[in-house]
Design a protein around this nucleic acid. Structure first.
Lengths: 199, 199
DNA sequence: ACCTGAACACCGTTCAAGT
DNA sequence: ACCTGAACACCGTTCAAGT
């Protein structure tokens, strides 16, 4: 994790890890099954920092809180974010958010089948949004005015009418705001479905 | 693309590409700016295969059609899917779906700002869902009965009550169905918002 | 139980020299 | 305008030998 924080995920090599551990790269194989397993372990370790607030009993508040907690942990080590969002984990650390969301939906009256569907849509939206944020880096943020201007020029240069018209909004991206918007969208859809829940 | 189809994205090396081109790896640098640029080019090439059906004028039908066309192209080369979904592209190939969706939303009465928000939520949901499908590989599909049984056992072993209860549904994943469900969810939310559109 | 030396089969990339 | 030889600074991983 220290290497990723300092040099990015591409900076992780068995030799680099061994080096910061003052040991030979080959020695690592006595402790872990290879590089892929190491990266899985990193993702699990970071994801284990996930903490949910207490359940309030109001479905949308609780879903929002889970989404925010998930964003928080995913971005707790920005350069490791793609790892956490992308790796297919099987450990119980990865099941914690599943348990939290499904449990909420079941108590709200959804059947197990629909709860799983909604869970998956909920996670897909969160992960898609966070992956955009993680990949964008600081470039896309609100701060970099020169970057925004450059990007806006490119968009206008595309000569696609809707893109040109929306260029001022496309050129910048407030990630926190977009996350809230996307989550609100799926929460609204969940609430709309809860009025006729079954199956 | 041929290498990715045959050996996966990790099989792509400058030497491998040069080899299938019957040339030396170093020669590639006369034509492209390095490996990252090469992978960008691959993603753009595949994405360029995107074809939208004609606009019907019914918002939800048109959004559904775009989503399906996007899924189609993303999975047209399954082992390249993560590349297409993950790379930050700046070319006009990447702007085609943006133009299509924003244009639709504008005609439906949304302001440019809200159209961009909705576009981003729409894409995030599609990308999140498709990334799950691409990463899962064939393992998770409906076919592999032994895999489903094994996965179900793991879930039950977690001893998390909601996970255990929903294990039969969590252990399998019909990707096409989940995609339709997630898209339907955001389309519903868009329609709900179109009844009070502005800004 | 853990470490390392020797070794293998790879990488991406630069640059000067060729045609 | 394009190619290549020589070269550099790296990779992940195995295995037998050591303590």
């Amino acid at each position: 994790v220290a290497i990723i924080d300092g040099h990015g995920a591409e900076g992780v090599s068995m030799r680099a890890v061994a080096n910061t551990l003052k040991v030979d790269a080959k020695s690592l194989y006595n402790h872990i099954d290879g590089k892929e397993a190491l990266l899985d372990a990193v993702a699990e370790r970071v994801l284990a920092g996930l903490r949910f607030p207490a359940v309030s009993g109001v479905l949308d508040d609780d879903l929002r809180a889970i989404a925010r907690a998930f964003r928080r942990v995913a971005l707790s080590h920005p350069r490791a974010a793609a790892l956490i969002l992308t790796r297919q984990l099987s450990s119980s650390a990865a099941l914690a958010p599943v348990e939290a969301v499904v449990s909420l939906l079941r108590h709200a009256g959804f059947g197990p089948k629909e709860a799983v569907h909604l869970l998956r849509a909920f996670l897909a939206t969160a992960i898609g949004t966070l992956l955009r944020e993680a990949n964008a880096g600081p470039t896309f943020g609100a701060a970099d005015l020169a970057g925004i201007a450059r990007r806006r020029a490119t968009l206008v240069g595309s000569r696609m009418p809707a893109v040109v018209e929306a260029a001022p909004h496309l050129a910048r991206c407030n990630h926190g705001e977009e996350f809230e918007f996307a989550i609100e969208l799926v929460i609204d859809a969940v609430k709309a479905r809860s009025r006729s829940a079954s199956s």
